[in-house]
């Protein structure tokens, strides 16, 4: 698999506080990577380090295969756009003027791409309206447009839907999906709003205490979260035979427990097991939400 961003045991130590303690993550090309963690887990710190705003105190990372201590890292960064915490905009300028400034920073020969960018983020009719008069959603979209100047291949969005109203959330979500699908831009989104991430992400990195506790694809997460029947039996070998006969998907989790990813007729299951000398001790329905999965990973009791 080709990765656009990889970190290897990245550490960040402030005076008396360790923000990142050996964080390793891998962002595949073309993914929407949901970077999930509670407040203070280290999401923004990592994004700041990737963007070059802060230096790691340990470990390394690479962007488009270029390591952070390579002088060419600045060239790799120029293929990347980012909105860190809040969009970086000149409030006294219009949307177009902000984009022009960005184009000049990039050394673009002309401003031809600006109308297309404004249309892409739904701001083409803002005219002479100054950014200070924009709504939060409009600013967020303009921030994304600025991050996209120069046809970037990687977009880092730090809490892009924080503070947005429902309409704004939908707009930003649709924009992110469109950028990923139509322009094949790899997008890293840090967020603690799990429901919203679930609608976007193709890959997840769960961060807690400054390190990644689990990295998985959306399919893997779906498997982990899907509805199942958890059964406790006296003989899992017998259960396995019965479930195979019934053509059901299942996972044996230990000597006495299994997860069945279907809704079997309980009476039929009990009789079939009895025929093989196995008893059904208990069964319960289970459906893990993304939130539940996250809590099971990081431990809810520590939540501040």
């Amino acid at each position: 698999m080709e990765y656009v961003l990889r970190t290897d045991s990245v550490c960040k130590q402030y005076k008396n506080f360790k923000a990142l303690s050996g964080l390793s993550m891998n962002v595949p090309k073309g993914a929407i990577y949901g970077f999930v963690g509670r407040n203070g887990a280290g999401k923004t710190t990592l994004i700041r380090i990737i963007c070059g705003l802060q230096m790691p105190t340990g470990g390394s990372f690479e962007i488009f295969g270029v390591k952070n201590d390579d002088p060419d890292i600045t060239k790799s960064r120029s293929r990347m756009g980012a909105v860190v915490e809040s969009p970086s905009l000149f409030p006294e300028m219009t949307a177009e003027e902000n984009l022009k400034y960005q184009y000049r920073l990039l050394g673009m020969p002309d401003y031809k791409g600006i109308p297309e960018l404004l249309e892409l983020v739904g701001l083409k009719n803002t005219g002479k309206k100054k950014v200070k008069d924009f709504s939060l959603g409009m600013r967020q979209r303009l921030g994304i447009a600025i991050a996209l100047c120069g046809d970037q291949d990687l977009l880092m969005l730090d809490e892009p839907i924080n503070g947005l109203d429902p309409q704004g959330i939908i707009e930003v979500r649709e924009l992110i999906l469109r950028l990923n699908r139509e322009k094949n831009i790899t997008i890293v989104i840090s967020s603690h709003i799990l429901d919203e991430l679930a609608k976007l992400a193709t890959h997840y990195g769960f961060i807690d205490g400054g390190r990644i506790v689990r990295e998985m694809s959306a399919e893997e997460l779906e498997d982990a979260c899907r509805k199942s029947l958890r059964v406790n039996v006296t003989d899992t070998a017998a259960l396995s035979g019965v479930l195979d006969d019934m053509g059901m998907e299942y996972t044996i989790t230990d000597d006495n427990n299994a997860e069945i990813y279907a809704r079997p007729n309980i009476s039929e299951l009990v009789f079939a097991l009895k025929d093989k000398g196995c008893q059904l001790v208990s069964c319960s329905e289970r459906e893990e939400t993304l939130e539940g999965f996250f809590i099971s990973l990081v431990g809810g009791e520590k939540h501040e």
């Binding site: 600045t74 860190v84 809040s86 970086s88 409030p91």
Partner: peptide, 14 residues
């Protein structure tokens, strides 16, 4: 304060 400096870093300016 506006965060414009962040854009400069992200764009690869040293």
């Amino acid at each position: 304060s506006s965060g414009i400096i962040r854009n400069k870093f992200v764009m690869g300016h040293s």
